[in-house]
Simulated assay, not measured.
Amino acid sequence: MQSTSSSIYSSGSSTHSSNNSSTTTSSTPSQQQQQQQPPKQTFPIAYPPPLKAPTCFRRFTPNLLLQIQQLSTTSNKRRHIPILEVWQPSIFNTRVAKKVPKLGSGDVYVTQCEGFLHLRSNSEGQTDREREVNADDKEVERRVIGVVARNAQDEGKRMVYFEDGVGWEASSGDGVYRVSFQDRVLEWEKDVQGERFVLRIADSRRVKVARMSRTSVEMGSWGRRVREYLKDGLISEYGAETKEELDGRLCTLVLISGVWVAGQEGWINTS
């Protein structure tokens, strides 16, 4: 699949030292821990321009619905690096991955353009500048990493699948969108202003995993508790369990489930 340029998209104080040499400053353990925390990750959501082809012809080829980018923080320039792309399948190719069901009307699949910039396993051996150049210039094979498809056991529900077949059930009710794996449940719920969604662990409402608006998804750093709670639904039985791989899977789950919510909210047309 050919690379899609991000240029066609639209997405929605200094400290001075003291002259008094006898005065020294020290950081408390809590301040040091905050300094060691990775920065918040922002994933802008970009929409392609409207297609000019008649609707009846659009299903003959895959239809690009949106692109999820990552805001680079590795240089002085703020750059949007394409990370994921969301596609509506063509009527001739409904089997996009071996271990997930065939896709039908209203189903979508997600391909990866570039590894997540903030995870070490995706940038090992590269400088920050090399990583950004590769994201723009290197021809990257589009790999399907997940789908949002019908639940084979319940036609009224959807499933969020990873490419290796691990599936999370998607359901909605009372204004809340839920994705669950066995007894592990995440909930997308509108904030008090009703303009953004907040993703929380259902068993602990205080634990916020991400935030989403029409124009971006924001994620902070996750503690061990979040990883342990969700681990069984993130890694297949043959998968490794490094921190970077878990975080990569968790980022993917958040973003793909966010795509499902966007479709339910009418932000994208998946019909």
Rank of each mutant, 00 (worst) to 15 (best):
E237R: 09
D107N: 15
I81A: 08
N20Q: 12
E228Y: 04
W87Y: 10
D137W: 07
Y47G: 09
L51E: 08
G12D: 14
T61C: 09
R150L: 12
S5R: 13
R206V: 02
V96D: 09
T74I: 12
A170Q: 05
L119V: 02
E85A: 08
F60H: 01
R196D: 04
Y238N: 11
K102I: 05
R158Q: 07
S180L: 12
A262V: 01
W222M: 14
E85M: 13
R150H: 10
R143Q: 13
D128M: 06
V179S: 13
K243T: 03
G239D: 03
R225T: 13
G173P: 00
L119T: 03
E85Y: 02
K138H: 01
T61L: 14
G12R: 15
R249D: 13
E189N: 06
D136I: 15
T28I: 13
N151A: 12
T25P: 00
I45D: 08
N63P: 00
R59Q: 05
P29T: 14
F197M: 08
Q264C: 03
A152N: 09
G194A: 03
W222S: 12
T74K: 11
K138C: 02
R143A: 14
S7Q: 14
R59F: 02
Q37W: 00
G194L: 08
V254P: 01
S22Q: 09
Q69D: 15
S13T: 13
H80I: 04
Y47H: 12
M219T: 11
V86E: 12
G167I: 10
W168D: 00
W222T: 14
L119Q: 03
S180V: 14
W222F: 13
S75H: 03
L71E: 05
V166Y: 01
S90L: 04
F92P: 07
T242L: 02
T215W: 07
L64S: 02
V198C: 06
V100P: 02
G248I: 04
E245W: 03
E245T: 04
I256V: 15
C251Y: 13
G167Y: 10
T24F: 10
G146I: 04
S27Q: 12
E187S: 15
A53Y: 01
K77Q: 02
V192W: 01
S26Y: 11
S236R: 05
T42H: 04
C113A: 14
Y229P: 00
T24R: 15
L255A: 13
V179T: 11
C251I: 08
C56F: 07
S21D: 05
S204P: 00
W267R: 05
D203R: 15
G258K: 05
R158S: 12
T242H: 01
I145L: 09
L250P: 01
G104E: 14
S13H: 05
R58K: 10
K157S: 08
W260R: 10
L186G: 09
V108G: 11
L199N: 07
H16V: 07
V86N: 09
N20I: 14
F197Q: 05
I45K: 13
L253F: 04
R196S: 06
M212N: 04
P49N: 05
L84G: 00
F60A: 02
V147M: 10
Q126C: 06
P62L: 09
F43L: 12
V160P: 00
L234A: 11
D137M: 08
H118D: 13
E114S: 09
